[in-house]
């Protein structure tokens, strides 16, 4: 059976047409410690999902499994109809369709802002340099820092760096964006500028999965909130439902601690 046959089969069996991310019984251990414990969830196209939970609850591990920065050991993950397996071709395909923004920005310090953004389109998508640079400039415009194109990451503030990181991810024209605590390493006055960019992205119809502690963002932007604890999904619901009348005791406890 060829790869495309395999992926079609999976799509038919597991995922409806507008399912972007499908997780089914995902388990992962770090040594003896079970980081993910039977995670099953479906994220639809154009949906914005915020993942909440205390630290160590497996939020980041889960989101990192979705583009194979961590390897899940049991269960299945299907992203846009392609199943994540050891098949390098599938991994490559998924990574080029899933953009990721990290807590620590992880910009390439030896490259200018423009080169940071154009690196992957040029080397992965094999696009002409001139065209990519135009794209990069328009993306910088979109995240509000067109004047920083020629600078190096070390010359920018944290908020500016994170916006460059978002532009870098967008340059691959992904169908899904993953955010792993994008504002946790920022000074308070810079959080808003990054959240604004994310809000704009959400309204433009991007499928987004966001791990964050920004309750305001979750309330305002999320279509759905997923609450995790000890590697399990405890509760899922719309923001109003989740913040006003949570069903689980553990959710209520978490909310009482942070609100």
């Amino acid at each position: 059976m060829s790869v495309s046959d395999a992926t079609t089969a999976v799509t038919a069996e597991l995922a409806a047409r507008d399912d972007m991310i499908v997780c089914e019984g995902v388990n992962k251990w770090f040594g003896d410690f079970q980081a993910l414990d039977g995670i099953s969830a479906v994220i639809k196209e154009r949906e914005v999902v915020v993942v909440l939970g205390p630290s160590g609850s497996g939020k980041s591990t889960w989101i990192r499994c979705i583009n194979r920065l961590e390897v899940h050991q049991e269960g299945r993950i299907v992203v846009d109809g392609v199943e994540l397996t050891n098949d390098l071709r599938n991994i490559e395909k998924i990574r080029s369709e899933v953009g990721m923004v990290f807590q620590q920005f992880n910009l390439f310090p030896h490259l200018t802002v423009l080169d940071n953004i154009t690196l992957a389109p040029i080397w992965v998508r094999k696009k002409p340099k001139r065209e990519t640079e135009e794209l990069a400039r328009s993306l910088l415009e979109r995240v509000g820092i067109p004047e920083q194109a020629e600078k190096y990451p070390g010359q920018l503030s944290g908020g500016q760096q994170q916006r460059v990181a978002i532009a870098r991810a967008l340059a691959m024209e992904p169908r899904i964006m993953l955010f792993d605590e994008p504002t946790s390493a920022l000074d308070p006055e810079m959080i808003k500028e990054v959240l604004d960019v994310m809000k704009e992205l959400a309204t433009s119809g991007m499928t987004m999965m966001v791990v964050t502690h920004e309750m305001g963002f979750a309330r305002e932007v999320a279509d759905r909130v997923i609450f995790m604890e000890d590697g399990q999904i405890v509760e899922t619901g719309t923001p109003e439902h989740f913040f006003t009348s949570p069903e689980e005791e553990r959710t209520r406890l978490f909310l009482s601690q942070i609100l």
């Binding site: 920065l69 030896h110 992965v124």
Partner: peptide
């Protein structure tokens, strides 16, 4: 070279050789 650099390069879809040549080795 921080681990985050490798992760960022993987996340944007760079292949191993390109990642070494363009991201890891220069640093």
């Amino acid at each position: 070279v921080p681990k985050g650099q490798t992760e960022a390069a993987q996340a944007v879809g760079l292949r191993r050789v390109t990642m070494l040549r363009r991201v890891i080795l220069p640093q």
